[in-house]
């Protein structure tokens, strides 16, 4: 009789730890998500920024059981947004590049493998195939150029009116341009994109067809 209220009140107490862990996990994922968003909006164009910030609250909805699933779909959404500058059809272009990387370099297969148990020499052999294919694909569809031509680790001067979208200042960021500093990374810029054109209605979410040999 009096067990009912007891059990009802005691119920949260017994699963408290699990909730704590779950909510901690959710919090962690949200932080990660926001960080990756910020990173992506830095790389990506400005148009993306409001869109992603608008979507951010939906991700923080604490639905514990589906937290992991939700975070993966969100991570996918982030990945989709990154190269959206490459083509107007944002998710299609990203999925297309992914499919091309899979075709040429087995990129998805490679990243989906658990390589923790494999020896470095085993990984090395396959990494060659993946590297070669990735390079071939990138060379074929994108033209990559360094943003700065100077040697890395050399002293350079950043002139006034530099484009912060192309050049990131770090460390002792004080005073006004021109700045003197050390070039840490030359940066990469895609000067040309020539992805294959897609047939209307082509399902880009199929990044690798299943294969059945008859």
């Amino acid at each position: 009789m009096n067990l009912d209220p007891n059990t009802l009140t005691q119920l949260p107490v017994s699963i408290d730890l699990l909730h704590l862990v779950l909510s901690g996990l959710v919090l962690l994922l949200v932080v990660l998500l926001i960080m990756s968003r910020q990173l992506s909006s830095k790389l990506s164009n400005q148009e993306c920024a409001p869109k992603s910030s608008g979507q951010a609250p939906t991700a923080s909805r604490p639905r514990a059981p589906s937290a992991v699933g939700a975070s993966t779909t969100q991570a996918q959404a982030v990945r989709v947004n990154v190269p959206s500058k490459l083509d107007s059809a944002a998710p299609d272009a990203a999925l297309q590049l992914l499919a091309l990387l899979q075709q040429e370099a087995r990129f998805i297969d490679f990243t989906q493998e658990d390589i923790s148990e494999l020896s470095d020499s085993d990984i090395g052999g396959v990494a060659r195939v993946v590297h070669e294919g990735c390079k071939k694909t990138l060379d074929k569809y994108l033209t990559l150029v360094a943003i700065r031509d100077e040697e890395e680790e050399s002293a350079i001067t950043v002139a006034e009116g530099f484009d912060p979208a192309q050049l990131q200042l770090t460390g002792n960021v004080v005073g006004e341009a021109p700045y003197k500093g050390t070039l840490i990374h030359r940066g990469w810029k895609v000067s040309e994109v020539s992805l294959p054109k897609l047939a209307k209605g082509h399902n880009t979410r199929i990044v690798a067809r299943a294969e059945v040999e008859l």
């Binding site: 087995r106 998805i108 297969d109 490679f110 989906q112 493998e113 390589i115 494999l118 085993d122 990984i123 052999g125 396959v126 060659r128 195939v129 690798a208 294969e211």
Partner: peptide, 18 residues
């Protein structure tokens, strides 16, 4: 030059030829 032929399936590291 190393020639590696990975397996045809999605398990890239199984039965590869090197």
């Amino acid at each position: 030059v190393a020639i590696t032929i990975p397996s045809r399936g999605s398990r890239l590291f199984s039965s590869k030829i090197r």
